[in-house]
Design a protein around this nucleic acid. Sequence first.
DNA 1: TATCAGTATGTAGAGTGTCTACCTGTCGGT
DNA 2: ACCGACAGGTAGACACTCTACATACTGATA
Lengths: 120, 120
Amino acid sequence: MAPKNTPTSRVELLQGTLDLIILQALRWGPCHGYGMVQLIRAQTRNVLHVETGSLYPALQRLVRQGAIATEWGISDNNRRVRMYRLTTKGRARLTAERSRWEQLTEAIASLMLPPAAEEP
Amino acid sequence: MAPKNTPTSRVELLQGTLDLIILQALRWGPCHGYGMVQLIRAQTRNVLHVETGSLYPALQRLVRQGAIATEWGISDNNRRVRMYRLTTKGRARLTAERSRWEQLTEAIASLMLPPAAEEP
DNA sequence: TATCAGTATGTAGAGTGTCTACCTGTCGGT
DNA sequence: ACCGACAGGTAGACACTCTACATACTGATA
């Protein structure tokens, strides 16, 4: 996927997971872009590093799709920030993405297991 | 990701998972392309449908990378098939892909949880 | 014997999402 | 006066999967 290898223990995102991650991050309340990067980093103990070059386009995409809404605001340290929040549509989207993710992980988990005995 | 929606309960693959799936499928022994499709389908109870248009290029990719080896053979029903098998390199690759996958799922799982209490 | 479904391998091109690499600007501390 | 952290953003490359199509062989069935 990404051309480069993993120098430390870095995990590259899989295509399609970023939307889920963003929606998930916004579940705790409105947040601005840069804040999400840190939130996700902290929440995953430094495993997931969302690149801003991926994040901002993804946010715009989600806004276009109506999953999140945005407005200018002021951060704690008195900076002009673009705040994002989940819409009703976004909450539904999150639910859908989560179940999709669960299905996929379960399916892959079942491939990890020894072959299933065929059932008649 | 894919332009179309999900008619039934179909789960689209995430980009980057196919290699893991193929390597995993070959863990049970050599197999040919079409056979893998059915194996994966059966093993995941019809959740994962690997498209042949994705599979064959992926197999070629893995051969190029030395993760799998291939040779012509004969299937059970007397058909000319291209058999694939894991190489030593491929087995190592599988291990790597699995740990990568585990890291990612764990990281995303931790995002699903309530926010972590910050630790000093 | 014609035809069709299933088996089997493959290619071309589109679409999409993430990445790297860059750019701009503000604020607080030194 | 400068620097690092904070904050938002764009352009283009790259990689992967998808749809759609093409080929060929086999066995069953009409």
